[in-house]
Simulated assay, not measured.
Amino acid sequence: MASSIHLYGGRILINIAIVDNEKSVLENIRGILLNLSGEFKDVHIDTYEKAEDFLVAFETIRYQILISDVDMPEINGIEMGKKARDRDPNIYIIFLTAYVEYAIESYRMEAYQYILKEDVEERLPEIMERLIEIVRNHSIKYCYIGSETQRVKMCQDDIIYIQKAKGTKYTSFFTVKGEVRERISIENVLEKLMSDEFVIVDRSSVVNLRHIMKVRDNVIYLSNGDAVEASHARIKKVKENIRKYWEER
């Protein structure tokens, strides 16, 4: 069961999830964040006592930051973090642990930070102030996609890739919530999005750099498990865009 708080009024810009099977730890972490409320305007926090509850909520709520205990029953923090990364490779994860050896696992999955529980009150405020600033610097953009009678408001970050099938007038937007179709050209799609994070990989396909998991030869593997082939003429430029994107993050 999640408990929710708004630190300030206004629209939610940043969603933070805290996961720990000990209620006292959840309250302590939440209290630390509330004490930093001057730095946390327009932030929303949810707390979860079970990893399973967080993963279910993550299907519909876009969390940018996850703070989690490592040692939890049923699904531990490392396993939950990997599942969260499968859903959104750009989520920032901070692990809390009472055991130094768990830090090695957190590094292997490229967690943003790990914090020993004995150091949490000292280290978490500074880390969160820095991380909130990083997230805020990435402005959230929305667009409307779909048919004239069924428009959907979509966060651009949640669009994984876009394809126009040969011989059809419709373009498909593959998103974290499923497929949406619109009668629009690829050129007009790019004009609508106006973002350097979307790159053309062939004449009929555009991918979101945020959702690229790996590239093998000219095949691009995406966060939803789909794969898109880049043309031989474009693959070199695509790889350059990917490298530049990750260097700037």
Rank of each mutant, 00 (worst) to 15 (best):
S3G: 03
S4F: 14
S4M: 12
S4D: 12
I5M: 12
L7Q: 00
L7P: 02
G10K: 08
G10F: 11
R11A: 14
I12V: 15
I14K: 00
I16M: 05
I16Q: 01
D20E: 10
V25L: 09
N28V: 04
R30D: 10
G31Q: 10
L33R: 03
L33Y: 03
D46A: 02
T47M: 09
E49V: 08
F54W: 03
F54C: 01
L55E: 03
V56K: 14
I61R: 04
Q64E: 09
L66S: 10
N76Q: 05
I78W: 05
E79G: 00
D86A: 08
R87V: 06
Y92E: 07
F95N: 02
A98K: 09
A98H: 09
V100L: 11
Y107I: 07
E110G: 00
A111Q: 07
Y112H: 11
I115R: 11
I115S: 02
K117E: 02
E118A: 07
E126V: 10
L131H: 01
I132K: 00
I140D: 11
C143H: 04
I145T: 10
I145V: 11
S147P: 13
V152A: 04
D157E: 14
K164E: 04
F173D: 01
T175L: 13
E179Q: 15
R181D: 11
R183P: 07
I186Q: 06
E187R: 15
E187S: 15
E197F: 10
V199W: 09
V201K: 07
D202L: 11
N218L: 08
V228R: 06
E229F: 12
A230M: 04
A230H: 00
H232N: 14
K239P: 06
N241T: 01
N241S: 12
W246A: 06
